Simulated scan of single mutants.
Amino acid sequence: MSAFNHTPSGPSTFILNGIPGLEAAHIWISIPFSIIYIISLLGNVMILFVVSKEQTLHKPMFLLLSMLALTDISGSTCVVPKALCIFWFSFKDITVDGCLTQMFFFNTIAAMYSVILVTMAFNRYVAICDPLRYVTILSNARIAKLGLLGLIRAVLLILPQPLLLRMLPFCANRVIPHTYCEHMAVVKMSCGDTTVSRTYGLVTTLVIIGLDLTLIGLSYGLIIRAVLRLSSKKAHKKALNTCTAHICVMLVTYSPYLFSALTHRFGQGIAAHIHILLANLYLLVPPMINPIIYGVKTKELRDKVGKYICRMGSPGATDFKPV
Results as ranks from 00 to 15, higher is better:
residue 96 V to T: 04
residue 173 N to Y: 14
residue 162 P to K: 13
residue 189 M to N: 04
residue 190 S to F: 05
residue 50 V to Q: 03
residue 18 G to T: 15
residue 321 K to W: 02
residue 211 L to K: 05
residue 292 I to P: 01
residue 305 V to N: 04
residue 209 I to V: 13
residue 60 P to R: 13
residue 310 C to K: 14
residue 210 G to M: 10
residue 138 L to C: 10
residue 94 I to C: 00
residue 86 I to R: 00
residue 306 G to W: 14
residue 236 H to M: 07
residue 181 C to L: 04
residue 70 L to K: 04
residue 71 T to Q: 07
residue 190 S to G: 08
residue 1 M to A: 10
residue 123 N to M: 07
residue 190 S to W: 08
residue 36 I to M: 09
residue 240 L to Y: 06
residue 67 M to Y: 13
residue 217 G to W: 07
residue 186 V to K: 00
residue 222 L to H: 05
residue 62 F to W: 13
residue 137 I to R: 15
residue 228 L to I: 12
residue 227 V to T: 12
residue 112 M to D: 09
residue 106 F to M: 05
residue 184 M to I: 10
residue 63 L to V: 02
residue 68 L to V: 05
residue 240 L to S: 06
residue 285 V to C: 07
residue 171 C to G: 15
residue 281 L to T: 13
residue 270 I to K: 08
residue 240 L to P: 01
residue 255 S to Q: 09
residue 15 I to P: 00
residue 221 G to K: 09
residue 294 Y to C: 05
residue 112 M to I: 11
residue 65 L to N: 10
residue 86 I to Q: 01
residue 300 E to N: 05
residue 145 K to A: 08
residue 129 C to S: 12
residue 80 V to C: 03
residue 139 S to L: 06
residue 287 P to H: 00
residue 65 L to M: 13
residue 95 T to I: 04
residue 185 A to Q: 07
residue 98 G to L: 00
residue 203 V to K: 03
residue 254 Y to C: 11
residue 168 L to I: 05
residue 67 M to I: 05
residue 214 T to E: 06
residue 119 T to G: 03
residue 12 S to A: 13
residue 149 L to W: 09
residue 81 P to M: 01
residue 3 A to W: 10
residue 283 L to W: 02
residue 216 I to N: 01
residue 216 I to C: 01
residue 181 C to A: 15
residue 220 Y to C: 08
residue 7 T to L: 03
residue 42 L to S: 02
residue 294 Y to A: 03
residue 313 G to I: 15
residue 234 K to T: 14
residue 64 L to R: 06
residue 208 I to S: 04
residue 93 D to W: 00
residue 29 I to E: 04
residue 103 M to F: 00
residue 59 K to A: 11
residue 268 Q to A: 12
residue 79 V to M: 00
residue 102 Q to E: 10
residue 38 I to D: 04
residue 255 S to V: 15
residue 218 L to Y: 02
residue 218 L to V: 15
residue 293 I to Q: 02
residue 201 G to E: 05
residue 276 I to L: 01
residue 149 L to Q: 07
residue 30 S to W: 04
residue 243 C to Q: 11
residue 186 V to L: 09
residue 5 N to W: 08
residue 304 K to H: 08
residue 92 K to Y: 00
residue 292 I to S: 05
residue 57 L to Y: 03
residue 140 N to K: 13
residue 240 L to E: 11
residue 303 D to N: 06
residue 24 A to G: 07
residue 260 S to C: 13
residue 195 T to N: 14
residue 250 M to A: 08
residue 43 G to M: 02
residue 289 I to L: 15
residue 295 G to P: 08
residue 265 R to F: 09
residue 299 K to E: 08
residue 64 L to A: 04
residue 4 F to R: 05
residue 14 F to M: 00
residue 104 F to H: 06
residue 16 L to H: 00
residue 102 Q to M: 12
residue 284 L to R: 03
residue 286 P to I: 03
residue 275 H to R: 12
residue 106 F to V: 06
residue 73 I to V: 11
residue 6 H to W: 01
residue 236 H to L: 08
residue 122 F to T: 12
residue 226 A to M: 07
residue 29 I to K: 03
residue 76 S to I: 04
residue 39 I to K: 04
